[in-house]
Deep mutational scan, measured.
Amino acid sequence: MAAGGDHGSPDSYRSPLASRYASPEMCFVFSDRYKFRTWRQLWLWLAEAEQTLGLPITDEQIQEMKSNLENIDFKMAAEEEKRLRHDVMAHVHTFGHCCPKAAGIIHLGATSCYVGDNTDLIILRNALDLLLPKLARVISRLADFAKERASLPTLGFTHFQPAQLTTVGKRCCLWIQDLCMDLQNLKRVRDDLRFRGVKGTTGTQASFLQLFEGDDHKVEQLDKMVTEKAGFKRAFIITGQTYTRKVDIEVLSVLASLGASVHKICTDIRLLANLKEMEEPFEKQQIGSSAMPYKRNPMRSERCCSLARHLMTLVMDPLQTASVQWFERTLDDSANRRICLAEAFLTADTILNTLQNISEGLVVYPKVIERRIRQELPFMATENIIMAMVKAGGSRQDCHEKIRVLSQQAASVVKQEGGDNDLIERIQVDAYFSPIHSQLDHLLDPSSFTGRASQQVQRFLEEEVYPLLKPYESVMKVKAELCL
Results as ranks from 00 to 15, higher is better:
132 L>H: 13
382 T>D: 00
319 L>I: 13
30 F>N: 05
423 L>P: 07
105 I>N: 12
353 N>G: 12
233 K>S: 09
147 K>N: 13
289 S>L: 00
30 F>Q: 08
184 Q>W: 09
87 D>P: 01
82 K>I: 15
409 Q>W: 07
446 P>G: 05
295 K>R: 02
219 V>M: 13
324 V>W: 11
278 M>S: 04
364 V>G: 03
63 Q>H: 07
462 E>I: 12
424 I>M: 14
306 S>D: 02
379 F>N: 00
31 S>V: 03
16 P>V: 13
405 V>F: 14
222 L>P: 03
394 G>S: 10
313 T>S: 11
31 S>N: 01
471 P>Y: 15
188 R>I: 05
22 A>C: 15
70 E>D: 14
222 L>N: 01
132 L>G: 13
199 K>E: 01
94 T>V: 14
212 F>S: 05
39 W>Y: 15
375 Q>I: 09
30 F>P: 00
212 F>Y: 05
392 A>Y: 08
326 W>Y: 09
191 D>E: 14
314 L>H: 10
40 R>T: 02
316 M>G: 09
438 S>C: 13
5 G>R: 06
263 H>K: 02
55 L>M: 13
54 G>K: 09
190 R>W: 08
394 G>Q: 09
145 F>D: 14
76 M>P: 05
93 H>P: 00
4 G>L: 15
164 Q>G: 01
187 K>R: 12
16 P>T: 15
47 A>E: 03
51 Q>V: 04
383 E>A: 02
95 F>P: 00
60 E>W: 11
310 H>W: 06
105 I>D: 06
13 Y>D: 02
185 N>R: 10
459 R>S: 12
469 L>W: 06
130 L>R: 07
423 L>K: 03
445 D>Y: 09
336 N>K: 05
393 G>R: 05
321 T>D: 03
151 S>R: 11
448 S>Y: 13
425 E>M: 11
140 S>T: 15
378 P>A: 04
84 L>C: 05
306 S>M: 05
378 P>T: 04
321 T>Y: 08
65 M>C: 08
388 A>I: 06
217 H>P: 12
36 F>C: 15
304 C>G: 13
153 P>Y: 04
331 L>S: 07
408 Q>H: 11
404 R>E: 03
62 I>S: 03
323 S>V: 05
237 I>R: 09
277 E>A: 04
414 V>D: 05
412 S>R: 13
86 H>A: 01
288 G>E: 03
102 A>H: 02
115 V>G: 01
200 G>S: 11
90 A>K: 07
358 I>Q: 01
194 R>W: 09
203 G>C: 00
31 S>F: 01
100 P>I: 09
100 P>N: 11
135 L>W: 06
140 S>W: 15
277 E>I: 00
412 S>C: 11
98 C>P: 08
45 W>T: 05
385 I>V: 12
235 A>V: 15
242 T>W: 00
176 I>C: 11
370 E>N: 14
427 I>T: 08
167 T>A: 03
298 P>W: 03
300 R>Y: 09
